[in-house]
């Protein structure tokens, strides 16, 4: 089935350290991003969308069993999966949300920096892969639920105590 350009209203949920593709008008959704980052990819020509929910900046695991947990392997695996479905790098754009610091901790220990390190890694990997990051809602201290419309390429961010934003 090809994308008809009409949103079906169907929701596909992406868990933590998970990625899914959509090409049939579904909305991709990932909940409660804290220091984690959700990255939406879109090829507007073939209307192929992807959403990956990463937790950490760099994959240094020996076995690399769980590539979607990390920004570097997560982004690269997602791009590979999109290309396998006919997407072209030159057309793919990205949007990202998350990377918050949930708790203010004394002494600026590593705990508070995971969000920031994730942001830096996502920026760096996208640049290395030559993917244009066209919009972002990153950092701060609020959790974000991210909805990505696979028809329009629009990303909606839902947070507690602030109005929804569309990027």
């Amino acid at each position: 089935m090809i994308n008809t350009g009409i949103s079906t209203g169907k929701k596909t949920v992406i868990g933590i350290a998970d990625m899914k593709l959509a090409q049939h008008g579904e909305t991709l959704i990932t909940y409660a991003l804290g220091s984690c980052i959700g990255i939406c990819f879109f090829d507007p020509k073939i209307k192929l969308a992807a959403l990956v929910h990463i937790m950490l900046p760099l994959n240094m695991e020996a076995g690399r069993k769980n590539p979607m947990k990390y920004a570097d392997t997560g982004i690269r695996e997602t791009l590979k999966a999109m290309e396998a479905r006919g997407a072209l790098r030159a057309r793919i754009t990205a949007k990202a949300a998350g990377g918050a610091k949930m708790f203010e901790t004394a002494g600026g220990d590593s705990l508070g920096n995971i969000g920031q390190r994730n942001i830096e890694s996502v920026h760096m990997i996208l640049k290395m892969e030559r993917i244009r990051l066209i919009a972002e809602d990153l950092g701060g201290s609020v959790a974000r639920t991210l909805l990505f419309d696979s028809v329009t390429g629009e990303a909606t961010i839902r947070s507690y105590g602030r109005p929804d934003t569309i990027i």
Binding site: S35, M60, M102, T105, A106, I114
Partner: peptide, 27 residues
């Protein structure tokens, strides 16, 4: 123990704090 820190927000993001902290060692 460090000084405590309080947050009011989505519980998934709160529970993800210990997950991310040890995420490099375990799934």
């Amino acid at each position: 123990l460090t000084v405590p820190s309080l947050v009011i927000d989505m519980q998934g993001a709160i529970l993800a704090v210990p997950m991310a902290e040890f995420g490099g060692q375990t799934d």
